[in-house]
């Protein structure tokens, strides 16, 4: 099937929505998503849920170990495991 200039599928809309959570969707993509949002309930529900997840994670202020910290810990722990 020929790809439409303006109308996108649900999967494409989900993909644009995912990208826009990280500020990686461009203006044209956002426009196409907004067009689909006008009539597609499934997309509307997905966008709502996805935005809620983003806000929740921002609110949680979670912190992780960076890769080097984790690798150091892994090395030391593996050593301890071997000695056990």
């Amino acid at each position: 099937m020929k790809k439409s200039f303006l109308f996108i599928t649900c999967e494409e809309a989900f993909h644009i929505c995912d990208k826009s959570q990280y500020g990686e969707a461009n203006g044209w993509e956002k426009f196409k998503l907004n067009v689909r949002l006008l009539w597609c309930q499934v997309t509307r529900a997905y966008v709502k849920r996805n935005r809620k997840l983003t806000k929740t994670i921002e609110k949680g202020h979670v912190e992780c170990m960076d890769s080097s910290e984790k690798n150091d810990l892994k090395l030391r722990f593996d050593q301890e495991l071997k000695n056990k």
């Binding site: 912190e63 992780c64 170990m65 984790k70 810990l73 892994k74 722990f77 495991l81």
Partner: peptide
């Protein structure tokens, strides 16, 4: 224990740092 670091290090770290 072989999976502890991958599965739980971030969880425990976030719990501690908060």
């Amino acid at each position: 224990p072989n999976t502890w670091i991958d599965k739980y290090s971030d969880y425990l770290f976030n719990y501690t740092i908060s």
